[in-house]
């Protein structure tokens, strides 16, 4: 955790998250490509991780694996906020010769910590990194964010077993529980419930939060610091498309691109939300 985590300013965090929402909208609108819904659901936790947890300037540090890599616009927005992505780069998202690849790419932008794009693999990377950190006697933590629909991938359950078998208490899994697969509700596609019971029975220490509440996010992350012996999971209840009225809980906005009119309306809503209008 960063030192700032001991002196938290929730209003400031909310403002930053809202700025990131606007950047997500602009990036995707500009490139006419990307995944608004899942980025907008995940962005509060990702903002918190960037602002309060991961010190990207350190060589040996905590890591964040965005396994649901299609939500990458949220991570780029926060990395921009932290100064690792330049202003002019935001308009290169998903375009040729950009560092801002369509999914995270470790080689062109090492701050992303992980090359994503095929769902289901990120938690296993987290297991490998957490094992490695234990082996080198590092006290750093690996954070992994999965989508709730991603829980359908069998490899996730392999990794869940491995993490508890090796008692990886330096591994924190965040499930962005926005309730949607690509376009349909997860529960209509293949049910993952009872999720908390399933994860608990796999040997994980499980918490549930409102993933849009900075107070709950902070409280949960802080409480996990002092818990040992088991890998940790945060089921982060979120809303797909959070912050734009007509995108919220609407599967259409998994990877839909707004019309000019929709874009202007979305931007106005987000600005009002951030107190900018």
């Amino acid at each position: 955790m960063k030192d700032i985590a001991n002196n938290i300013n929730y209003d400031q965090l909310r403002m930053t998250a809202n700025k990131n929402r606007i950047k997500i909208l602009d990036m995707i609108q500009d490139g006419k490509s990307g995944h608004l819904g899942g980025a907008l659901s995940a962005v509060d936790v990702i903002t918190y991780l960037g602002e309060c947890v991961i010190d990207y300037d350190k060589k040996e540090r905590d890591n964040f694996i965005l396994s649901k890599g299609h939500a990458v616009a949220a991570l780029y927005a926060e990395l921009h906020e932290l100064g690792y992505i330049q202003d002019k780069e935001l308009s290169t998202f998903r375009k040729i010769n950009s560092r801002l690849q369509g999914h995270t790419n470790l080689l062109v932008l090492p701050y992303t910590d992980y090359t994503s794009g095929l769902l289901g693999q990120g938690l296993s990377y987290g297991v490998g990194m957490a094992l490695a950190k234990k082996l080198k006697k590092s006290h750093n933590t690996v954070y992994v964010m999965l989508g709730d629909g991603e829980m359908h991938e069998g490899q996730i359950w392999e990794a869940l077993m491995e993490a508890s078998h090796y008692r990886l208490d330096n591994l924190v899994l965040i499930i962005d529980r926005n309730g949607f697969c690509s376009h349909q509700p997860v529960e209509n596609v293949i049910s993952i419930e009872p999720l908390i019971d399933r994860l608990g029975s796999f040997g994980w220490n499980v918490k549930e939060i409102d993933g849009h509440s900075m107070e709950q996010i902070h409280s949960c992350f802080m409480s996990l610091q002092s818990q040992y012996g088991k890998p940790k999971c945060i089921i982060s209840h979120t809303v797909k498309g959070k912050g734009v009225s007509f995108m919220e809980n609407n599967g259409k906005w998994h990877r839909n691109i707004p019309t000019e009119e929709e874009y202007l309306q979305a931007k106005e809503e987000l600005k009002k939300r951030g107190g900018l209008l």
Partner: peptide
Amino acid sequence: AEQSTMSAAGGMAAE
């Protein structure tokens, strides 16, 4: 769990 083994190896290498 071959798939997870391979990806965990990736995590090891990243470290």
